[in-house]
Design a binder for these strands. Structure first.
Lengths: 149, 149
DNA sequence: ATTGATGAAAGTCAAAGAAAGTCAAAAACA
DNA sequence: TGTTTTTGACTTTCTTTGACTTTCATCAAT
């Protein structure tokens, strides 16, 4: 049994018992499983992607930690369907279509769409393509999964 | 829970109950929370910045103290006030502080904050600093301005 | 009334500490 | 062989600590 699988299993069980949210200290977990800390990053990067329905955020520095949340079963399926059909580049136009869908499905409000349209416009992101559309894709997925988890 | 966060919380609650003005003795506060006095300076420097709507002034010497007060942005437009004072680089942590401001001012909902926190996290943006904080600053400003226009 | 000493505040700044992140080489596996 | 996993050296971010500095008030001596 691979250590990565063991850690993945452990985290997912922990999440089951915990309403879909866990908060861990990377170094503690590494100690617990006798592996290097960056192994935890590997597990998170490969097993807890947005596309799988997980939102991750973390803080560095003293008192820092990593939090992982799972999408809520209710209402999550439409969003996850979109997230999984998004690909890893999303143009501004495409984003509009996605947001239109979510708006008419009643999942996002008009204000919420506005925030994303403003924040993830070409002007806001600033960089050139293809980088820009890649950043937008990641940002949009993260935003949506974060919202419903 | 970090001691800095505890102190921040304490001061903000105190300010709530006190009409937006508090006056503290740095050394007493440090004693009360079992930390060094300069920790108080750290909390004030990171959590009570001007751009978050606080004004700090202090007197040294015998009988000295620190006064912190909430400043209402004149003209009433809190969003524009924040956007104008944001600077052209915003860290993830700073964004949290800004969003907290907007949340407690009743300008953004919790969902709207979640969208931005997820969409503009380090993970979502992907690139390295200093570029990352610059993109986040632009994106956040654009999102907020777009929202109110 | 001026000066000077003393002590009581707060301020500054950089080092140390505490976390997480990155990246690519090495190893294991299919 | 090509992909996935493991490892570890190095980096970044944030917090805590403490030595040193500056400012102010008071009081005693001129």
């Amino acid at each position: 049994m691979k250590i990565s699988d063991v850690i993945e299993q452990f985290l997912k069980e922990m999440m089951e018992e915990n309403d879909g949210v866990i908060e861990i200290r990377r170094n503690d977990l590494a100690t617990q499983f006798h592996c290097v800390p960056s192994q935890i990053n590997y597990v998170i990067a490969t097993r807890f992607k947005n596309e799988h329905g997980y939102a991750v955020d973390s803080r560095r520095g003293g008192g820092g930690s990593v939090r992982i949340r799972r999408v809520q079963p209710s209402g999550g399926n439409i969003v996850m369907h979109l997230v999984n059909h998004m690909g890893d580049r999303v143009s501004y136009q495409e984003m509009h279509f996605f947001l239109q869908d979510l708006l008419s499905a009643g999942i996002l409000s008009e204000r919420e769409c506005k925030l994303l349209i403003g924040g993830l416009s070409d002007r806001a992101l600033g960089m050139e393509n293809p980088h820009r559309d890649a950043v937008r894709a990641r940002a949009l997925k993260n935003a949506l999964v974060h919202l419903i988890s």
